[in-house]
Design a binder for these strands. Sequence first.
DNA 1: CCGTTCGGAGTACGAGTGTTCACTGACTCA
DNA 2: TGAGTCAGTGAACACTCGTACTCCGAACGG
Lengths: 208, 208
Amino acid sequence: MSHTPVGIRQTQKLRTRQALLDAALALLEHQSLSSLGLREVTRAAGVTPTAFYRHFEDTAALGVALVEETLGSLHGLIAAVLTETGDSEERLDRSVAVIARHVGAQPAHFRFIAREQHGGVGPVRAAIAAQLRRFAEEVACALGQESGAAGWSEEDLLMLGGLYVDHMVITTSTLLEAGPEGEAEVVRVARRRLRLVTIGRAHWLDEG
Amino acid sequence: MSHTPVGIRQTQKLRTRQALLDAALALLEHQSLSSLGLREVTRAAGVTPTAFYRHFEDTAALGVALVEETLGSLHGLIAAVLTETGDSEERLDRSVAVIARHVGAQPAHFRFIAREQHGGVGPVRAAIAAQLRRFAEEVACALGQESGAAGWSEEDLLMLGGLYVDHMVITTSTLLEAGPEGEAEVVRVARRRLRLVTIGRAHWLDEG
DNA sequence: CCGTTCGGAGTACGAGTGTTCACTGACTCA
DNA sequence: TGAGTCAGTGAACACTCGTACTCCGAACGG
């Protein structure tokens, strides 16, 4: 992939950068980015305030980096799940399960995304929107290669992809609100919702 | 309704209270509640910081009041639109139109809701969640009285009501992001999404 | 009419904020 | 090996912040 220089200096710099990101993410569990202080982050990361500027210009820039870290590695994953074999019911269950697993594994990251998707920091909002748009396009592309997609316009595929992605985001934040003990119920409802959408999809061309 | 005492004192108090709410709402256009300062609000409202405490304990309490102001008056409205006569296509268009009109009329209020729905202030999140749950129940109730609702379990009606409400919220924030010039396109896509859900609804019992 | 209530003003305090500057010392590389 | 680079330090800057006081004066109620 990208060049990963092994200089002691570079690695140490990356280590501090990651410490800042981790500290910020931990603090963002109970507040939003626009109220996150630069000093607050550096204190939690065990670094002086000035060191922050070696890595990020703003707390906003740090937020954008967090967006990349969270969503950047997810591309292709959803599309992959959708293109796996199995009937639509199976694929549906698997999609929801994948989401639940990821959210359970790194809740702080997804809480951050849910919170800042409409949050007060413009650049971060834009970064999230861009990533979600890419997801929608990927899903639309995957759907377009299915057998049932004959006769669907590109616009409608994008509409459907966006619907799935938005539903994925909603499910994510609902999972976070419910906590581990409420997960099963949330998954149940999410599956039903997806099934309803799938049924609508199957009959879309009948009544378009 | 509620008692509205006409004392000079009471009215003046309500006036400043409203000034605080309006000032806060204006400031919240470009930031989120958790970064909103008490002094900032009072400065914009033209009062001293100490006066704030006569009306709200916190900025969080002010946020809850804003939630009530925005969503409290909307109850019954959606259900009313849904129970009006006309075929499902008409009702669907009317629902989207009503949303677009409300968002266009008071964008700041709805931006606030979208932003704080997953924001960093717990009590406000809870207040919004409670209101949205009420909406979902109202929609579910309205749907239950339609002719096509025979055979639907109460749980599935609630699932569907929640789906509609969540979609309403998404549409709202998408409208806000798009601005007035992008409104037509957003409305187009929102209508299509709703139509797909409606189709799924019509065939729900066939394949349940 | 007069004592009480109370919304709001004014002042002051300590704590925390973002940003700047000169500096240090370990790493880099010719 | 020696000059240069640069991630991170520490002190200081000028703010803003939330909150606790005391006090004023207009509106209230008996």
